[in-house]
Design a protein around this nucleic acid. Structure first.
Length: 435
RNA sequence: GGAGAGGUGGCAGAGUGGUCGAAUGCGCCGGACUCGAAAUCCGGUAACAGGGUCUCCCUGUUCGAGGGUUCGAAUCCCUCCCUCUCCGCCA
C-alpha cells in the first residue's frame, strides 16, 4: 500500500512513477474521492465533537441533580445529521481503502524503465555452461528412470502435479535440507516452521489479496457448509514469515529480523495455460526455501544486495551457472520496489530460467500490516520488508539433473550435496554409485 | 465434541452506564541525590486518523472483531473470532 500522504501532496508524481510500470492511476477519481472525504470527515468530526461536549454536560448536570432536558433536546437535534454523516464517511473511507489496496508499489529510482522481461538488465554472470559431447536430455527424460513420475502426479491431482520416488525424491529432500542449513549456519537466518493454510487478512498483509485471489488455492474446513471465513494455501512462505510482524511494534534492537523456512507453495497458475507444460518448471505445488528480512528502512537496499548474495552462494555450491537480472519497471511484482531475479542455466532449453527472485518491498507490505518499530526518538515508524527464494527446490532439482547429467543417464551429485545423500557421488537408476 | 474462565496501554493488572484513553505496579525516558553507580524521590510515557497559526496546538476514532441499546458504552444486549483450564477423541 502506498502512503496516502504522497498521493495527496504529489499526485502527478505518483502517477508518473506508476505509469513507468504500466499502471494507469486514475488521478481524477482519486482527487474527487479525496475532496469528498475531506469535506465529509471535517463535518462528521465537528458533529461528533458537539455531541460529545453536550453529553458530557448532561452527565455533569445529572450529577448535580439539575434538569438536563434542554441539553437532551439539543443533542437530539444532531442525531439524524450525525448518523448520516458517519455512514457517508464510512463508505468513502472503504472506497479509499479499496483504491489504495489495488495500487502497486512505486519502483525505486535505480530500477530500469521498461515494458517486459525483454527490458531487464543483466547484472552479472557466474559459471560457464557446460559443453556436452552427447545429446543433452531434459529433466523429464533424465528423471524418468530416476523416479520423477508425472503420470502418477496427474492421476492423483491433475495437471501440474509431480510424484517423486526413490533417488529423485531423496535428491529433492537433500536439496531442501542443504539450502536450509546454509541459510541458518552461514547466512544467519532463523529456521521456522509455519502454517501452510492462512487467513485472508494474512494474505492482505503481503499483497496477494484482494487483487490476486485467482492465483491462490482456497481451502475449507470439513463439516462446514460454506460457513466461516475462507482459508487459503500459501503461495510462498514469504506470506507467513513476513506476517510475523503484522500489528507489531518491534524494538529497534530486535532488527534485523532474518527468517527462513522450507515449505510447499501452492499456486493456481491461472493465466499461464500453455506455458511450461512439460516437466516440473511450473507446478501447482512446489517446495521452496524462503528468506525474509525485516529491517530498518535505512538498511533495506543493503539487505537486498546481501540476500541476492545468499541465493547466489547456493547456486555456486551446487555448481550451477547462473546470471543475475535486474528487473525493469514493467516486469516487477505488485509489491516490489526493486527486484533481482537469479536465472539458472538449463542446457536442455539452452537458456537461463528463473530460480530465485529477491525483492525489496520497502514499506509497501509494512503499511498494510501496520508493522512498525520504535526509532531512536521513540516514535513508531514503518519497517521495510524483503523476501527472496533461497531457492525454489523443484527448479533446482531440474537444474541439477540437467547440468550434471552423464551420457549413461546417471547424474553427478555436486560435492556440497553429497553429505545429504549419504556420501554418494552419483544418482543412478539402480541407486548405486558407479564411480 | 462437552463444561467452565477470560480477551483492557510495551508488559502485568484494576475498572460493571457519565470529566475513563483508562487506577496501580513493572518497564522505558528526563530530573534530583551521588565522585560514579545502585537504592530512593519527583515528573513524563498508547496507537491510528483528520485539521491548523504545523519542533506545538485542536478534533475524532480505538479497551479481541462486527452490529445493537443510549444524550452518553471498556462497562448493558446480540453475533463472530481467539486464548486458557478440565473431560472426551485423536497423529
Amino acid at each position: 500500500m502506498l502512503d496516502i500522504h504522497l498521493l495527496r501532496t504529489d499526485l502527478s508524481g505518483v502517477a508518473a512513477r506508476l505509469a513507468s510500470r504500466g499502471y494507469t492511476l486514475d488521478t481524477d477519481a482519486f482527487a474527487a474521492l479525496e475532496a469528498e472525504r475531506k469535506e465529509v470527515q471535517t463535518r462528521t468530526q465537528e458533529l461528533q465533537a458537539k455531541r460529545n461536549a453536550i453529553s458530557k454536560q448532561i452527565g455533569l448536570a445529572r450529577a448535580k441533580g439539575e434538569d438536563a432536558s434542554a441539553l437532551m433536546e439539543q443533542v437530539a437535534s444532531l442525531g439524524d445529521e450525525l448518523k448520516a454523516a458517519e455512514e457517508k464517511l464510512a463508505v468513502i473511507q472503504a472506497k479509499m481503502q479499496d483504491f489504495l489496496l489495488n495500487l502497486p508499489n512505486l519502483p525505486h529510482a535505480s530500477v530500469p524503465v521498461g515494458d517486459s522481461a525483454a527490458d531487464n538488465v543483466e547484472v552479472r554472470r557466474w559459471g560457464t555452461p557446460r559443453r556436452f559431447d552427447f545429446a543433452v536430455r531434459d529433466h523429464v527424460d533424465i528423471g524418468a528412470v530416476l523416479g520423477l513420475d508425472f503420470d502418477t502426479g496427474a492421476k492423483l491431482s491433475g495437471a501440474r502435479f509431480t510424484f517423486m520416488r526413490g533417488p529423485v525424491a531423496r535428491l529433492h529432500r537433500a536439496l531442501a535440507q542443504f539450502m536450509l542449513d546454509v541459510q541458518t549456519t552461514e547466512h544467519g537466518y532463523t529456521e521456522c516452521y509455519t502454517p501452510y493454510v492462512v487467513t485472508a487478512e494474512t494474505l492482505r498483509g503481503t499483497g496477494q489479496l484482494p487483487k490476486f485471489e485467482a492465483d491462490l488455492f482456497a481451502a475449507k474446513k470439513g463439516g462446514q457448509e460454506g460457513e466461516g471465513e475462507a482459508l487459503y494455501l500459501i503461495p510462498t512462505s514469504e506470506v507467513t514469515l513476513t506476517n510475523v510482524v503484522r500489528d507489531e511494534i518491534v524494538p529497534l534492537e530486535a532488527l534485523p529480523i532474518k527468517l527462513t523456512a522450507h515449505t510447499p507453495c501452492f499456486r493456481s497458475e491461472a493465466g499461464s495455460y500453455g506455458k511450461d507444460t512439460r516437466g516440473m518448471i511450473r507446478q501447482h505445488q512446489f517446495d521452496k526455501v524462503e528468506m525474509v528480512q525485516i529491517v530498518h528502512p535505512d538498511r533495506s537496499y543493503e539487505a537486498l544486495e546481501e540476500m541476492v548474495g545468499h541465493a547466489e552462494a547456493l547456486l555456486r555450491k551446487l555448481e550451477l551457472p547462473y546470471r543475475v537480472m535486474l528487473l525493469c519497471t514493467g516486469d516487477m511484482g505488485f509489491g516490489a520496489a526493486k527486484t533481482y531475479d537469479l536465472e539458472v542455466w538449463l542446457p536442455a532449453q539452452g537458456t537461463y530460467r528463473e530460480i530465485s527472485s529477491v525483492s525489496n518491498c520497502e514499506a509497501f507490505q509494512a503499511r498494510r500490516m501496520q508493522a512498525r518499530f520504535r526509532n531512536a526518538q521513540g516514535k513508531t515508524e514503518l519497517l521495510h520488508t524483503l523476501n527472496g527464494s533461497g531457492l525454489a527446490v523443484g527448479r533446482t532439482l531440474v537444474a541439477v539433473l540437467e547440468n550434471h547429467q552423464r551420457e549413461d543417464g546417471s547424474v553427478i551429485i555436486p560435492e556440497a550435496l553429497r553429505p545429504y545423500m549419504g556420501g554418494e557421488k552419483v544418482l543412478a537408476a539402480d541407486g548405486k554409485t558407479s564411480e
